[in-house]
């Protein structure tokens, strides 16, 4: 009888133990020499554009850093959940990616956000990274795309080849659609427009879906500058939902339709920034800077 009771108690204990998550001990991280680069993106549910942008970038990293394991995480839990439920694709969020790295005893980790700016997504990611730094021998962090003045200049120059032919006359403009944010980093967008203008591309205008400048602000700029023809590009890593529907969709609320209704001749280019070789190179550069930098200071 005692045996039966013992077995039952043990089974119950095992079940409870099986449900609990691995917890970390407070010991110092062991230097196993294992290295990883964690690419953190907002994410997209659009399979085909993901292949051309996020996955292409991941391939570049694998090629450039053969001694590192390269893995990806998304910051958008909505997209992660959607991909899991709809497509049965498991993608880590940032916490889960760190759990993987810890469980597999990675000691040297570089986190490279493929975000555009140091906005809300970046802040949230940073909080997770900060909390993890004592669990690794080295934990380093690369900058998002537009972090320093040189980054803006590099992106503007990288895009010049693509967009200058779209502004062959003074009546032709290029409009980039950025996402926009409530975060103070939204100022990145008007700042970027300044950089384009300073680089001699006066007819480049930046608008956002959810921040400032709005599409109405952009239309005002276009009218002020006597523009008659507009080429629309997404200023987003991927040409996903916003680019496909909000920018170039045929529906009445899309930027393309709104601009046409105002009498502009409109062309759209569905090309995520992640497809641009210069942008890819800039992310790699940011990672290289992070690798060569000092480790994040432990508090």
């Amino acid at each position: 009888m005692k045996k039966l009771l013992t077995i039952l108690v043990m089974m119950a204990l095992l079940m409870v133990a099986g449900c609990s998550k691995t917890t970390l001990t407070g010991t110092a991280p062991e230097d196993t020499g294992k290295q990883a680069i964690l690419l953190v993106s907002f994410g997209t549910s659009y399979e085909d554009t993901r292949a051309l942008t996020i996955d292409a970038l991941e391939d570049k990293y694998k090629e450039a850093y053969p001694d590192y394991e390269v893995l990806e995480a998304f910051t958008s839990q909505i997209i992660i959940d959607l991909l899991k439920e709809r497509d049965h694709i498991e993608i880590y969020n940032v916490e889960e990616a760190f759990n993987y790295l810890k469980d597999n005893k990675f000691a040297h980790v570089v986190v490279q956000p493929t975000l555009i700016m140091n906005g809300a997504e970046y802040d949230e990611m940073l909080a997770v990274v900060e909390a993890e730094k004592e669990n690794f021998v080295e934990l380093k962090l690369g900058n998002p795309l537009l972090s320093q003045s040189e980054d803006y200049e590099a992106v503007v120059e990288s895009l010049r080849v693509e967009i200058e032919p779209k502004m062959a006359t003074e009546n032709e403009a290029v409009v980039f659609m950025g996402h926009g944010t409530h975060h103070f980093a939204n100022a990145t967008y008007p700042a970027l427009e300044y950089y384009f203008h300073d680089a001699g591309m006066k007819n480049v205008f930046i608008g956002t879906v959810e921040g400032y400048p709005t599409v109405d602000d952009v239309i005002e700029r276009l009218n002020e500058n006597g523009i008659t023809k507009v080429t629309l590009y997404p200023f987003m890593l991927v040409a996903g939902d916003h680019a496909t529907n909000d920018m170039s969709g045929d529906e009445e609320g899309s930027w393309k339709t709104m601009l046409k209704k105002e009498g502009f001749e409109v062309e759209t280019v569905l090309r995520g920034l992640g497809e641009d070789a210069g942008v890819q190179a800039l992310y790699l550069e940011h990672t290289e800077e992070a690798i060569n930098a000092e480790m994040l200071e432990a508090e």
Binding site: S45, E47, R86
Partner: peptide, 11 residues
């Protein structure tokens, strides 16, 4: 289906 499906561009 939960936002799935290709479009002209993606295909």
């Amino acid at each position: 289906v939960m936002g799935a499906g290709g479009n002209w561009h993606s295909i």
